[in-house]
Structures are given as structure tokens and as C-alpha cells.
């Protein structure tokens, strides 16, 4: 006789499998970095309780498939060292993960490794995970080091894109114009040479730091403070997949932490109480309440840093499969 509370099982970060009686353990790795010994532990669990394979997920987690439901308590015990190593908030030790709604917080390699990373993405992702997890609400957050967006943060509810404000020292500039050239080729063509020195169009600049990376004399350097572009409410899915839109450019870390926390309160207030399995993407809630209501909640007690440029009205695009658009016959054309 097998009597499983599947709601509890899923909340405990085990997957509903198509194979009856089996499940998969979902390991959360905020910021995408764990120690090699935790990796070995995951492999050990897969060998001991699973089918000997590990699935690397899209959101930088592991899923260990082929686990017998009866083994869940034992697997949870074995997960303990990984949970502690990855710094994930937990309720009772030995009980596995306390929630699965808010998804793993993703990051690109960032400045730990990448020459273009504008900040330590893993560090910020872990800090954010500590801030918002455990939580049952279906929220996706991702961090990327620069505007290349290798972490695909625009497909998340909250996307954090690193920026540096280039600092120019004309006394060190020889006018070689490599910054101008590489900004044009690799970025957004925000620089031009005027009278042998460089002029930056601040409104066009995306803060990617390409000018700094290519400057041969340290005429361009990075700002002491790290800045971010916060993008909102991108999503995949059947109804209305869309990319996240720009919310605040040049925002600082402190404000991002507040805004994300505030957004959780907004969701608690306005989520469809009858939503299937209690899951509703924030974007669909916002579609119902309107942007102004969201803005009111998100910006509660937020004092924007002086550099920040906020969009007070956002329109999203994307596909509208749920409203007749894009149907092959008989529907309206988008």
C-alpha cells in the first residue's frame, strides 16, 4: 500500500514522476556554485537511491531521478550536507528542502570568472536566496553579470543585470579610440571622439564596461559602486510568453532587495485565491491589477539612489496565445 501526500512531496522539492512510485530529488544551488564535495554527494545519492544519473536543470539545480518514494526520508538525510554547503535556508535539519515554489536563484559566472562580469553574481544570488527562501510562491529570479545576459534573466520575474558606470580620466587618454571602436562593435555605440578626447552618451550607455576592458591606459575605469538594471516580469508558458521589460536602470543592490521583498507582499495580497495549486505568475496578477497598483506596492519604503532611472509605466509584448492571437486558423493575427 502506497499512500503519499503528493502536495507535501512536491513542496519538499521532490518531483511528480511519470513512473509510478518513483520521484526525483530537486537540489537547489543558488548562484550556481557548490563545492566539489557536494557534487560528489549528489552523485553518491544518485548511485545509492536513484538510477545512477543526474539531470542538470535549466535553473542550475540537480534533479536525481529514479528515487523510490519510500526512500525520501533517507534521501533527505543525505541532502543535509549539500543544503548546508549551499547556504540554503532550512527549517528542520534532516527534513530536506522546506519549499519549492520560489525557484532556484540563477546566476551567470559573473565577475568571479568572466572578464565582462560587473559584479559577483553568485554572491548576490545567494544573498537574495537567503532573503526570500523558503517561499511557496512561484517566483523566478536570476542574476547576470552584464548586458550580454548569458543567464537569460529576461525570462524571469526579476532579472538583475550588472552595470558599471564608466569613469573617464582625460589626463590618461591618448585618443586611440579603441573604446569607441569596441563600444560600436561589442555594445551600443555610446562613445565618440571629440577633439581627441572621448564623450560618452550617458543615456545610451548600458554600463557593460567594454570601454574599461579595452582601454589600454586606464583612462576608463569602473565605478566604485556596482549598479544594476532591474527588469520585470518576463515569463515562458502556454498563455502569454514574453521577455522582461526594463524597470529601473542604475539601481543599487539595497533597493533591489527591498523591491523583490515588496513584490512578494503584493503577490500575497492579490494572488487568485483559487489559483490551481496556488500557483500564479506575478505577471498575470499584474495584468489584472494594473501596473500602478504593482508600482505602489513594489516601491513601498524604497528610496531610490540618485543615479536610478525608473520607468513608471511599462508595457509588455510577447505572444498572446490565450487571446486568440497566433492561432493558425480563425484567430486574430498578432
Amino acid at each position: 500500500m502506497r499512500d503519499m501526500n503528493m502536495k507535501k512531496l512536491k513542496k519538499n522539492a521532490f518531483r511528480y514522476s511519470k513512473v509510478r512510485g518513483e520521484t526525483a530529488s530537486r537540489i537547489r544551488i543558488p548562484g550556481g556554485v557548490i563545492n566539489a564535495k557536494s557534487m560528489a554527494k549528489a552523485a553518491e545519492i544518485a548511485e545509492k537511491y536513484g538510477n545512477g544519473t543526474v539531470f542538470i536543470t535549466n535553473r542550475q539545480g540537480f534533479e536525481i531521478p529514479g528515487i523510490k518514494m519510500e526512500d525520501i526520508p533517507r534521501v533527505n538525510m543525505e541532502l543535509q550536507s549539500i543544503i548546508e554547503d549551499s547556504g540554503v535556508n532550512q527549517g528542520e535539519p534532516g527534513q530536506g528542502y522546506p519549499a519549492s515554489g520560489t525557484r532556484n536563484v540563477v546566476s551567470c559566472p559573473g565577475s568571479r570568472l568572466c572578464p565582462f562580469g560587473c559584479y559577483d553574481t553568485t554572491k548576490f544570488a545567494r544573498k537574495m536566496d537567503k532573503h526570500i527562501f523558503p517561499n511557496n510562491l512561484h517566483v523566478k529570479i536570476a542574476f547576470t553579470g552584464c548586458s550580454n545576459d548569458c543567464a537569460k534573466v529576461r525570462m524571469n520575474d526579476f532579472g538583475i543585470i550588472g552595470m558599471t558606470e564608466p569613469q573617464y580620466n582625460p589626463d590618461r587618454c591618448v585618443g586611440c579610440e579603441q573604446c569607441v571602436k569596441y563600444c560600436r562593435i561589442r555594445s551600443v555605440n555610446a562613445l565618440k571622439a571629440v577633439n581627441g578626447k572621448i564623450v560618452r552618451d550617458a543615456s545610451a550607455c548600458v554600463g557593460c564596461g567594454v570601454c574599461v576592458a579595452y582601454c589600454p591606459t586606464r583612462a576608463w575605469t569602473r565605478s566604485k559602486e556596482h549598479f544594476f538594471r532591474l527588469v520585470l516580469l518576463g515569463r515562458t508558458g502556454k498563455k502569454n510568453p514574453r521577455l522582461a521589460e526594463d524597470f529601473i536602470k542604475w539601481v543599487n543592490e539595497e533597493n533591489i532587495m527591498k523591491i523583490v521583498k515588496n513584490a512578494y507582499a503584493y503577490v500575497e495580497e492579490f494572488i487568485d485565491k483559487n489559483a490551481l495549486e496556488g500557483k500564479e505568475h506575478i505577471g498575470y496578477i499584474l495584468d489584472r491589477t494594473g501596473f500602478d497598483e504593482f508600482l505602489k506596492w513594489a516601491m513601498k519604503d524604497v528610496e531610490l539612489n540618485p543615479e536610478a532611472e525608473i520607468s513608471r509605466r511599462i508595457y509588455w509584448g510577447g505572444k498572446f496565445y490565450d487571446r486568440g492571437y497566433g492561432r493558425s486558423k480563425g484567430g486574430l493575427q498578432a
Binding site: 565577475s111 572578464p115 562580469g117 560587473c118 559584479y119 559577483d120 558599471t164 564596461g209 574599461v212 576592458a213 582601454c215 586606464r218 575605469t221 569602473r222 566604485k224
Partner: peptide, 15 residues
Amino acid sequence: RKEGEGRFTDVDVVR
């Protein structure tokens, strides 16, 4: 040592 003024994030330059 100029802190953070190197080519890459959080990298110093000595000049």
C-alpha cells in the same frame, strides 16, 4: 595600488 581600477571588476591596478 589603485583599488578596483584594473581592467576587470574588483581587480586593482598598480600605477
